[in-house]
Structure formats: structure tokens, C-alpha cells
Design a protein around this nucleic acid. Structure first.
Lengths: 171, 171
DNA sequence: ACTGAAATGGTCATCAT
DNA sequence: ATGATGACCATTTCAGT
């Protein structure tokens, strides 16, 4: 029933998305109060957003620094043709890798990696050297992360092909 | 309540962290069932993890592609000394920027940016050119993201030189 | 989408280890 | 210091409107 397939989101949907991105553990009661809906109606909206694949999951954000991983690095990887990290699907063997992207350009992959120490970094890059050439950059400060997606003109953004740019954001 | 319990995380804490990273909306009842604790005890553990700053927030994960932002790019920025993006604190004016890191190496910053179209990318890089020289790479596929922090051998990975216990503070 | 009732979950005081 | 239990209150869910 959520499949009014290409219905675009209304203001209430966007409010729900904003609130749930900021606090996924809100009760439907409180969430409904904030968006101006009753709890059952709110729950139904959220269920539709989940079914539509717009909300994919709810996750606790953890501070890796406090879990003994004070070092965050980005590694650009140019894979060797015969040992590509993707094709061997060995990424699972590296729990240090938080995110992995395939990129256009000179390097075939970008890795975001959390590490416990310089020794750990050394051991990790050594292990990774089997797969390709690396360029490593250490994060010296994290200016911000996981900004909430919350646009002012969703109806524009939902139809990228037919629009002029969109430069404004809510509030 | 213990102010000085400088203890590190036990297996139950790790189970809680794993479950909450996978589903932040679990009830304490269900979470407690999974980790083998009563609901109040589970709630107390979670509260301590929050107070210790280990769990920083709970967020709904949204699929930016379905919100009209099919283009994900990384931009390396070498700021002009006089117009550094950090010092002018103009990053707020760019809702397209999802994450921003200060990096060691040739480039002073790495931006992760979500965009609605090629035209949008063009307009964005044009606006950003005021701040510094850019190198842009488009993400062609996202191999994985936000891997759950859940080490097989926490006793190894959890001991950097400075293990941080929990500092508790009252709510 | 709202209301109201039944089921479930959260919180607190208390007790036990 | 931490966990369990039970009472009480809040929230979720489902019916009917």
C-alpha cells in the first residue's frame, strides 16, 4: 500500500525524516507531536518511508575514538589487476575498513579506515599492500559528519532532470 | 552510581553495541533478551554507554539516491590561504557537503558531497572554487558503508596506548 | 487521519547477589 | 556495584469511525 510509486514526499514526510535522522529512538508519540500528527498516523508514515527504501535502517552512532580507535585515515588504492580488493572480496577480512568506494580517476578505490595506533596503521598498510598501491592520508580533524539530509524544496530535488539548481535549505 | 569505574567494556556491552548499531529502534525488552539481561539492566547499560560518550546518537539512515541525490563525489580541496573553508566557517552554506575532514598531506580537506545532477555538480564546484583548488572523484559504486564496529578480538584492538575508560557524568 | 481500548514496553523502587 | 522483580505509567497497535 505504500507503493504510490512515484509520489513525492510532502512537508510532513520531510519533518519525519529530519527528526528521525537526528534521533532514531524517538517514540511515535513524541515524533507525532513534533510533526503535528497522531501516533498511529506517524507510525504509518514511517512504515511507508521504510517500505519505499528511503529509510534503510536505524543505527547507533559510536565514537570510535573511545573504543580504542583514535586514528582515522583515508587510503586511496590503485589495485593490481590480479589482486583487486573487490574481486577477491577480501574486504570482509579487514574489520578496520569502515567504508569502501569505487572511484573514477587515477585510484580505483577509496577506503575509510579506523585504527588503534601507528603500529596498527603500519601493519594494516602492510597487509593491504598485497592488493595495490596506496596513498594514505590521516584525518587530523573531523569538521563534521552525517549532516542531516533536509532540503527546502524536496519537490524540486525529487525530479533532478527538470529543474534549475537548488541552493537553499530549510531554515 | 559509580563515578570512577574505569572498567573497559565487557562482552555484554559489546553485544549491546553491535545490536544497537544494527537496529537502534530495538526495545529494551528485545535488546535485553538478545544480550541476556532484563530490560531495566539493559537500559542502565545503554545509559552508561551514552554517558561515557561511546554512543553519541541514534540516526535513521536514509538512501540519498531515493531523495534525488544520485551523485556522490569526493572532493579534495587545497584551500587558498585567505579563503580557507574552515576559517570562514562557510561550510554551513553548503548543504551538499555530507562530511568534511581536515587531512594531512597535499590537500587540506576532503569533502564528501551528495548532488542531484551533473549540472548541480558543475554549479557546486564553481561555487567552491572560491575557496581553493579542487580534485573531484565521482563514486561509481559504494562497496560498503558504516560497517558495524564489532571486532573479533576486542582485547587486541581495544588497547591503544591510552585506553579510555568510562567517565561518567550525571544526566 | 483520529479516537479509544487492549497489549506491549519503559521506568522506578525495592530486593537479592 | 549490578541485576531481577513487580507495580505503575507511557507507548504502540489495531479496531472502528
Amino acid at each position: 500500500m505504500a507503493l504510490q510509486s512515484e509520489r513525492s514526499l510532502d512537508q510532513t514526510d520531510w519533518k519525519i525524516l529530519r527528526e528521525l535522522q537526528k534521533d532514531a529512538r524517538l517514540s511515535y508519540n513524541e515524533l507525532g507531536r513534533r510533526v503535528g500528527l497522531s501516533a498511529p498516523a506517524t507510525a504509518e508514515r514511517v512504515r511507508k518511508l521504510e517500505d519505499a527504501g528511503i529509510i534503510t535502517s536505524y543505527g547507533a552512532q559510536v565514537e570510535v575514538t573511545k573504543l580504542g580507535l583514535p586514528l582515522l585515515v583515508f587510503i586511496q588504492l590503485r589495485c593490481f589487476p590480479d589482486h583487486c580488493l573487490f574481486k577477491t572480496s577480501s574486504a570482509e577480512k579487514f574489520p578496520e575498513i569502515l567504508e569502501m568506494y569505487k572511484l573514477s580517476g587515477n585510484y580505483c578505490a577509496l577506503l575509510k579506515v579506523a585504527l588503534s595506533s601507528m603500529e596498527h596503521l603500519e601493519a594494516f598498510t602492510e597487509r593491504l599492500s598485497f592488493y595495490g598501491e596506496q596513498t594514505t592520508n590521516v584525518v587530523t580533524s573531523n569538521l563534521f559528519s552525517q549532516q542531516v539530509i533536509d532540503w527546502e524544496k524536496p519537490e524540486v530535488n525529487l525530479r533532478p532532470s527538470t529543474q534549475q539548481g537548488w541552493d537553499k535549505r530549510k531554515r
